[in-house]
Amino acid sequence: MTSASKSPWILHYNASSCNGCDIEILAALTPVYDVERFGIINTGNPAHTDIFLVTGGVNEQNKVVLKNLYDQIPEPKVVVAVGICASSGGVFRDCYNISGGVDTIIPVDVYVPGCSVRPEALIEGIVKALGILEQKRAAMEERK
């Protein structure tokens, strides 16, 4: 384990979610689950971010925003699609204004299904993401 996975800073973006998954994300940040134990900090700023948590099925309005935020995160970065809507579009998949999942806009590394996702599942997903973050960082070092 290197420093990359000891200090994952997250950015949370709601791409037209119903707020169910967002509440669970915030629940995971409360003292009960205390994710700061793992060095996790919720930043509001892509420039400081390592792990990008996206909820919701992404509609026409926030496609651009999602793409912008993703582009502003410096490498290495991992995207986690939180909840079934973010993973595949969920029940909104066929709506006229829904793209159908985060991966239709930006590459996604970890899918955490659930409606809404449970904090335990979320933490599990982030721990998976940490592994991917390590791999990406190792790949980055090699490229140098």
């Binding site: 973006y13 700023n45 892509p46 420039a47 651009v64 925003v65 999602l66 912008n68 935020l69 582009d71 502003q72 410096p74």
Partner: peptide
Amino acid sequence: GKTLPPYLSGCAV
């Protein structure tokens, strides 16, 4: 290094 656009809550186009 990579030049990023200014952070405007992701809304900058």
